[in-house]
Amino acid sequence: MTPRAHVPQVVLLGAGMDARAYRLSCLKECAVFEVDFPELLKTKAEIIHEATISPCHQRVTLQAKSLVRVPADLREHDWLEKLRKHGFNPNKTAVWVLEGILYYLPQHNAMNVLESIAANCALARMTLLADFMNKSSLSLSNSGTYHFYSDWPDHLLPTIGFSRVKLSQIGDPDAHFGLLHDPENLFEKVRKLPRSVQTHPDDGTPCCRLYLVEAS
């Protein structure tokens, strides 16, 4: 086997302006794939290029073993095939990062993404890292920006083939990230309430929750 065969794959779906491949030294042995709209990836590449040739002391350099940008629309059914054509191997170890993307997709598209990952990567060691909004969180946008939700992602994912699902809410000890212990914090107000509660008993406001999920 060539050394390349041992390189873990990291797939960033809906990568946007994410710069993990340039920020995280832990990716130095990883092949990173960024999947997003063609025009967005083009703009991002131009910005990154300018940063890599900048004469300042904070010049940006690639930390990952390699980086491949994959122009694709996650609302279309061919996104995984495009990913494969760009070098992704579903039979090799992979970490899938779906941060800030699922809840922007219509319900059937989001489920298609999750089901495609589960169905096509079952033969390899695979880890899914994703964030899920609950139903009440849809009210955070008055313009209908958010669509997909799940009040119980730890129940949903096993039904489509994922296992070992670990769920944390923003504000939990393992998902606090330096947030202030403010009782008025949006997520802190509902963290200790049962997940089945949709409106806060004190003021009747929606119990907006953001779940961080790790599954394999």
Rank of each mutant, 00 (worst) to 15 (best):
L27W: 03
K28H: 13
K28T: 10
E29G: 10
E29H: 14
C30H: 08
C30G: 06
A31E: 12
A31L: 10
A31H: 09
A31C: 13
V32R: 01
E34L: 04
F37P: 04
F37E: 09
P38Q: 03
P38C: 05
P38Y: 05
P38G: 02
E39Y: 07
E39L: 07
L40E: 07
L40C: 09
L41S: 00
L41N: 05
K42M: 04
K44M: 09
K44I: 04
E46N: 09
E46D: 10
I47N: 11
I48M: 09
H49K: 11
I53D: 00
P55N: 04
P55T: 02
H57E: 11
Q58P: 02
Q58I: 03
V60W: 02
V60L: 14
V60C: 07
T61Y: 08
T61I: 10
T61N: 09
T61D: 08
T61W: 05
L62I: 01
L62W: 02
K65E: 03
L67W: 02
R69G: 04
R69N: 10
V70L: 05
V70F: 07
V70D: 00
P71R: 05
D73E: 14
D73M: 00
D73R: 08
L74F: 10
L74C: 09
L74I: 10
R75P: 03
E76H: 15
E76L: 14
H77K: 14
H77A: 12
H77I: 00
D78A: 11
D78S: 14
W79G: 10
W79Y: 12
W79E: 07
L80Y: 04
E81T: 15
K82G: 08
K82P: 01
K82H: 14
K82W: 03
K82D: 01
K85R: 15
K85M: 11
G87R: 08
G87C: 09
F88Y: 05
N89R: 13
N89L: 08
N89W: 08
P90C: 06
P90L: 08
P90G: 06
P90D: 07
P90T: 03
N91Y: 06
N91I: 06
K92E: 12
K92W: 06
K92T: 07
T93Y: 12
T93L: 10
A94G: 09
A94H: 06
V95L: 15
V95H: 13
W96H: 10
W96T: 00
L98D: 09
E99W: 11
G100R: 07
G100V: 05
G100W: 00
L102Y: 00
Y103D: 09
Y103R: 00
Y103T: 14
Y103E: 07
Y103P: 06
Y104G: 07
L105S: 05
L105K: 10
P106Y: 12
P106E: 14
P106K: 13
Q107M: 15
Q107I: 15
H108M: 12
N109D: 15
N109Y: 10
A110Q: 07
A110M: 12
M111C: 12
M111W: 11
M111H: 14
V113P: 02
V113L: 05
V113M: 02
V113T: 01
L114G: 01
E115H: 11
E115I: 00
E115A: 13
S116K: 04
I117Y: 03
A118I: 06
A118L: 08
N120P: 01
N120A: 05
N120R: 08
C121N: 08
C121M: 13
A122C: 12
L123A: 13
A124C: 07
R125D: 15
